[in-house]
């Protein structure tokens, strides 16, 4: 059993009239790669800033490693932050930036330099120490910010959309590196992102935020396969929601159901449902979208409602795809994959 790195209880934050964080309870274990996922404005940054100590909560408590720190200043917490726009000191060289935390800890000059160089090498920036932040590219600055935060070996690293400003290729590369680095140093990472794919690929666990609240906490598979709310279902991945009469006719019970597009098979209308645990529905293909590796079918069901199905392009090619439009098809999925979610209120 690992200890807890962070425990948030009843955390709230109001700015004037607006409620940024509306009651968050959360426990993060030591050594976890934990992501906070949610649309912009959902309160992720505010929660992170309260953990770091830049904002004080309107109510609620924050514990770090079992110790209550709610009233402590940032410099009294064993936490470092990688800021969204890096916040590198422009008047210092890269090396001085990285060594700043060590200097404050009164590490000797020689030792400081050694550790800063090592930290820069760890993020593959050896030889850049004498440059100014303004002479680096976005990806390089991001890595300096990372080195600066990691060099002091905090118990906990907070990262606020650190990859947001990078282009796609670099972002994917940094995702892999970041994950490898976290495994290597064994520090707890709290990673804020609005990119569901990023959260799903990197995290041990994810908290999905919406309007200052946590909608669901779970492993990527749990979040994706078993969304607890319709918000989670629609925010994480593409989702089909069936509700009302359509749900009752197709699934067989009342409620709101989420089915992931890739779980749905597209068959000929005449194909018969063979296995009892399979559910089927017939409909007309309203739209076909060729995606290169896959094809997306939008099917209007005879029972009402519309489902999206995703098929790998094993045999189909772009020429065949258009011919599907207007066709009658049967959709089939495993009953377990129609996940009931609480009704959107």
């Amino acid at each position: 059993m690992k200890g807890s790195a962070i425990r948030l209880q009843g955390l709230r934050k109001e700015f004037g009239g607006t409620t940024a964080v509306a009651g968050v309870d959360l426990e993060i274990a030591d050594g976890e790669f934990f992501s906070m996922l949610g649309p912009s404005g959902s309160g992720k940054t505010t929660v992170l800033r309260m953990i770091a100590g830049f904002e004080s909560p309107s109510s609620g408590t924050i514990e770090l490693a079992g110790q209550e720190v709610t009233g402590l200043a940032p410099f009294e917490r064993d936490v470092h932050t990688v800021f969204q726009d890096y916040a590198l000191f422009p008047h210092m060289t890269v090396e001085q930036n990285v060594a700043y935390g060590l200097k404050i800890r009164k590490v000797s000059k020689a030792e400081r330099l050694k550790q800063a160089r090592k930290a820069l090498a760890d993020v593959r920036l050896e030889g850049f120490g004498k440059r100014r932040p303004s002479q680096l590219s976005g990806g390089q600055r991001q890595r300096v910010a990372l080195a600066r935060a990691l060099v002091c070996r905090p118990r906990l690293l907070l990262l606020d959309e650190p990859l947001g400003a990078l282009d796609l290729k670099l972002r994917e590369q940094m995702q892999v590196e970041l994950k490898a680095l976290q495994r290597e140093v064994g520090i707890t990472f709290v990673f804020v992102t609005h990119d569901q794919e990023e959260a799903l690929t990197m995290s041990d666990r994810i908290a999905v935020f919406n309007q200052g609240r946590i909608e669901q906490v779970g492993t990527p598979a749990e979040i994706y396969e078993r969304p607890a709310t319709s918000f989670v279902a629609s925010f994480v991945g593409t989702s089909n929601l069936l509700d009302g009469d359509a749900a009752e006719r197709v699934v067989g019970k009342p409620g709101t159901f989420s089915i992931r597009p890739e779980k749905i098979r597209v068959l000929k209308e005449s194909a018969l449902a063979d296995v009892p645990e399979h559910a089927t529905a017939v409909g007309t293909v309203a739209e076909v979208v060729y995606l290169g590796d896959a094809t997306r079918f939008l099917v209007d069901l005879d029972d009402g409602g519309r489902l999206t199905a995703l098929q790998q392009n094993l045999e189909t090619s772009s020429e065949d795809v258009a011919a599907f439009r207007g066709n009658r098809v049967r959709l089939q999925w495993h009953r377990d994959h129609a996940v009931q979610v609480p009704d959107a209120s």
Binding site: T81, F83, F89, A149, C152
Partner: peptide, 9 residues
């Protein structure tokens, strides 16, 4: 913020 974060009073 970054300075305080790194431990500076």
């Amino acid at each position: 913020d970054a300075s305080a974060d790194l431990g500076a009073k």
